[in-house]
Structure formats: C-alpha cells, structure tokens
Simulated assay, not measured.
Amino acid sequence: MAAHKIYAMSFKSVYPHYVAKAERKGRTKGEVDDIIFWLTGYDANGFEQQLADAVSMEEFFAQAPKMNDNRTLIKGVVCGVRVEDIEEPLMREIRYLDKLIDELAKGKAMEKILRAA
C-alpha cells in the first residue's frame, strides 16, 4: 500500500486491529492504550477525542501532544523493514507504534516495551 494511502486512513479504523492483535495473544486494550499514550503523549480524553473526530493517521501523529523522546530506542523489523532505517518521519512514527504492538503481542513485559530504565 502506498504511504499516502496509509496516511489518509483514519486512526479510528486502524486502532481496532491493534487491539485485536493484542487480545488474540492474551494482552489487553488497556495495554494498547498505555503504549499509545506513552508514544504520543495523548491522555485518555485526548485520545478519545481523536477517535471521535476520526482523524487520519497523519493528523493523529501531527496532533500528538508530545512524542516520547525514548521512541528512538525502538529498534527492529516491521513488515520487513528496520524501523530505525525508515527515513520518512511519519512512516517511522507509524512503524514505531506497529513495533510496540508487535512486542506486546509477543509477550514482552510492559516496562521493556515502554523502554523504562
């Protein structure tokens, strides 16, 4: 799928897939939300508003209150591409989130996923 099509998709349409992936592996919606809040700086109210407004992926990340500085510690492969090598900034942010959800689904501890000291 071309990047511009991904950017135009609503975050609201993608979010249930993140939750379903986590729940299939015994994780929770709350953990998915914690990851999103950690990465983007949204709180529950701000996040719910983004879903209600059906913002695009591009708008969701552009309007994020504070992207976590530690997101650059996220390394690894998503969809056959190393996230740390993605040059396009928005695609890198999207893939950071994808990678964190993958780690959650693989059973990694939340403190490791959230790059806690």
Rank of each mutant, 00 (worst) to 15 (best):
V83D: 05
R24E: 06
V14D: 02
I94D: 01
G41E: 02
I94V: 15
K112H: 11
V78S: 11
A44H: 08
K66P: 12
A22F: 07
L104Q: 00
D33I: 14
E88V: 11
Y7D: 02
K106C: 01
A22Q: 04
N68V: 02
T40A: 04
Q63I: 05
F60Q: 04
A105I: 03
L97Q: 07
H17A: 13
M57Q: 12
P65Y: 11
Q63W: 08
L114G: 03
H4P: 13
K106P: 00
Q50S: 15
K12N: 15
R24N: 14
K112C: 07
F47C: 08
E88Y: 09
E23N: 05
G26V: 09
Y15W: 12
T28K: 08
F61V: 09
S10V: 08
Y18I: 07
Y96W: 13
V55N: 02
T28F: 04
V55F: 03
D102T: 03
C79L: 12
R115Y: 02
E48G: 13
F37M: 05
M91S: 06
G30F: 02
A20V: 11
F61C: 07
I35L: 13
R71F: 08
N45C: 10
L73K: 07
C79A: 14
S13Y: 07
L104K: 02
L114F: 03
A52H: 15
K75P: 00
R27I: 02
A20I: 10
E31Y: 04
M1C: 09
K108W: 04
I86R: 00
A2C: 09
A116T: 00
C79K: 11
K25W: 09
K106D: 06
K99W: 04
G80Y: 00
L39Y: 11
A8F: 01
G107K: 05
Y15C: 05
L39K: 15
E111Y: 13
H4S: 14
I74F: 11
